[in-house]
Amino acid sequence: MLTAIEKKAIDHEIELVPYRKASVIEALKIVQQHRGWISDESVEEIAAYLEISPAEVDSVATFYNLIFRKPVGRHIILLCDSISCYVMGYRLLHKALEEKLHIRMGQTTDDNRFTLLPNVCLGCCDHAPALMIDKDLYRDIEPALLDDILKKYA
């Protein structure tokens, strides 16, 4: 069941568009914000609320890179793997992160603390390489700086 808070936020989005289902991306964002990811149950609940089929919700949910259809850790590390960061050495960061966290790209640590994901250009290519943890952007990063950065996230 969608919670009252989730419904209220979705209702607000519905008011801004000509028909209910046009708010499906907003609904997915809202539910993910509260639950961390979008489970099959969440897909069904959103579908019922917007009066469309679960398949239609899922076709949208699976299209976008930052709607998570699998559980994720408490913190999400997005490592830019686009061209300026490639030139400036993101591959060293990639290797260092995998070694420090004992996971591969796309995986979550056993203690559920971090999920490590590749991400397209973060729009700060003049300060490459870059990465983002949750909403925090880190620029001009070298492997030696990683420990201090990771420490901030419990």
Binding site: S82, I83, V120, C121, G123, C125
Partner: peptide
Amino acid sequence: DEMEPGTFKDR
């Protein structure tokens, strides 16, 4: 939307 790799001007 500025997602063209290498682009950071609109930011």
